[in-house]
Design a protein around this nucleic acid. Structure first.
Lengths: 220, 220
DNA sequence: CGAATAGTGTCTGTAAGACAGTATCTG
DNA sequence: CAGATACTGTCTTACAGACACTATTCG
């Protein structure tokens, strides 16, 4: 039984005015010390219950963000990906509203557009690419994009999120029909967005779908 | 950096008259020696290029099957899943026609209906459950089911595979329209299935889709 | 009232399913 | 020719998108 380096890495994704962005931090230790990379770290068998728990711990330690939407992405492995030796990275992706990253007040956490990434160590570029394509494909037929918005949001906001992720505009009537059909939103009474126009109804994701996704039979 | 046990496990799935089945082997070593389990084994950092390579090696060694459709499923990990200690299993699933398993002539490889599984060691029940639901959900919108049939097959055969996997009958006209639209099959000229009825045209999966799946925009 | 965005009613075109017909094999 | 299964043409139904209309806010 050969020794294998076991780590977790987390692609923390969010949506800003710049589009889809991923959180990177400068590495504190060699190899690649000082280079921007995904938050990650060794699995600590003494304290971590499982890899998901390790991912949650790493994300909280390095970015100050607790309890985001967090899902296993894929596992990256091999002799070539890390100069220290044969390694395994169990990669997760996390989705948060951009406000959550601001509230954490960690200046070392920097957001980078997923379309303009700096050179990345290990295979972190592949991990981010896989995370982005997973997010985009799951957005076509699930409630996943809700997790990029704050707790409470309007249907026009949610539609814009879906449109940015899928890279195309969506018919408003169809979108609203689908949201009704999915039955995943609770209206929040009496509260509206303001502006020089008709305010929009606010909604909240139903509690049942905060961890488990709601799926659509035939996509948007 | 705590020591972590690194393994791969493979859920080898096939379709027989009994429905969807998974290959199990009696374990040769402790723990759970003699108990039916998924083919699996330690990652060998000295020889395996990566985890996929390890899965391919394990499958070939234990079942005699080379070069099936093989895809990473998920990674199962934690302190509780293996009595030897904190462990990681990078799980893969493989699809083969039932004939491939017969041709390998390994009597120790036993097929079990995924609906009537014996008690399984570790979290192998979860791994199989995840593999089956992944196969079923991907079958709705991809060419994946082709890999459960021999190299050459007819459209009625393929339709039956889709129907068994999705658990519902499919409209024949719609199915054929979708297959045409997917444009993933090459007709094999001059060869037909025999029987006391009109023979069916034979097809072969286009080479481009033997490793990479063809995806459907809107599912079947 | 005009501008702006939210939300809805309705028509139309496209795609999926139902059904029935033709085609081709065996015995 | 009967029985069986393969394949296809066509009608109907269901759903997605286009469009237009109403609703509600600000200034």
């Amino acid at each position: 039984m050969d020794p294998v380096i076991c780590t977790v890495d987390v692609a923390l994704l969010t949506l800003t005015a710049e589009g889809l962005e991923v959180a990177l931090l400068k590495r504190e230790h060699a190899p690649f010390k000082g280079v921007a990379a995904l938050p990650g770290g060794y699995i600590q068998a003494r304290t971590d219950v499982d890899a998901r728990d390790a991912a949650r711990r790493v994300l909280l330690d390095k970015t100050g963000i607790a309890a985001p939407y967090l899902e296993q992405l894929a596992t990256f492995s091999g002799a070539a990906r890390d100069p220290r030796g044969w390694s395994v990275s169990i990669a997760y992706y996390a989705l948060v509203p951009a406000t959550t990253i601001a509230q954490a007040e960690r200046d070392e956490v920097r957001l980078h557009s997923v379309d303009r990434l700096p050179p990345l160590p290990f295979d972190h570029g592949d991990i981010i690419g896989t995370a982005v394509s997973r997010l985009r494909s799951k957005s076509q037929y699930s409630s996943l994009p809700c997790h990029l918005l704050a707790d409470v949001f309007t249907l026009p906001q949610l539609q814009r999120v879906y449109e940015v992720l899928m890279g195309e505009s969506i018919n408003k009537v169809s979108f609203r029909r689908k949201m009704t059909e999915m039955d995943m939103l609770d209206p929040v009474d009496g509260q509206f967005e303001s502006g020089a126009h008709r305010p929009a109804q606010l909604y909240r994701l139903k509690p049942a779908f905060r961890e488990q996704l709601q799926l659509l039979e035939r996509g948007l």
